[in-house]
């Protein structure tokens, strides 16, 4: 996967990464585990309670997408540093059918399945940086970053 849309730190500075963990997402129990792992790292990154809740909610939405629409995959999550700021980066990867029209998929209320259509559009609003790469047959990768304030 290219890092083409990785925008760097909050001020465009250099980003360092630590504490990388990878978790499979193949069952509903894994979605719950993803929430717990992201919660733990958000606490480590010293996020406020509201920001913790936002990033955990976003991770829950994206993990469910990975499971339900992507047919399973994984999340790679780490703590990122830029200058004095810390944040959490999570990358959700599946090798499912992919998303033919990304703009459409990012529209509120649009869903290919039985959901509410808020998974992608809603989680984008809950994080600071959101990047998605997908093409039909090639799976989907979503990368989100939330910086502590």
């Amino acid at each position: 996967m290219s890092a083409a849309r990785w925008a760097g730190g909050p001020a465009g500075g250099e980003v360092t990464v630590e504490q990388t963990e990878r978790h499979p997402i193949t069952t509903e129990a894994d979605v719950v585990r993803v929430r717990q792992v992201v919660r733990g790292l958000a606490v480590t990154a010293k996020m406020s309670l509201v920001d913790q809740t936002k990033v955990v909610t976003a991770a829950s939405e994206l993990a469910r997408n990975t499971l339900v629409y992507g047919g399973g995959g994984s999340m790679t999550v780490d703590i990122v540093h830029s200058g004095r700021r810390r944040g959490l980066r999570a990358v959700f990867v599946d090798s499912g059918p992919g998303i033919p029209d990304l703009d459409l998929a990012l529209t509120d209320g649009w869903t290919s399945g039985s959901g509410l259509g808020l998974g992608l559009s809603g989680s984008r609003r809950l994080v600071d940086d959101f990047a998605i790469e997908s093409s039909p047959g090639a799976g989907t990768t979503v990368r989100v970053v939330k910086w502590s304030r």
């Binding site: 309670l49 509201v50 809740t53 909610t57 939405e61 809603g122 609003r125 809950l126």
Partner: peptide
């Protein structure tokens, strides 16, 4: 409902 949950729900657009 916790306050942080309410804030997040509004931003999520739910």
């Amino acid at each position: 409902m916790r306050p942080a949950v309410a804030i997040t729900l509004v931003e999520l657009g739910l």
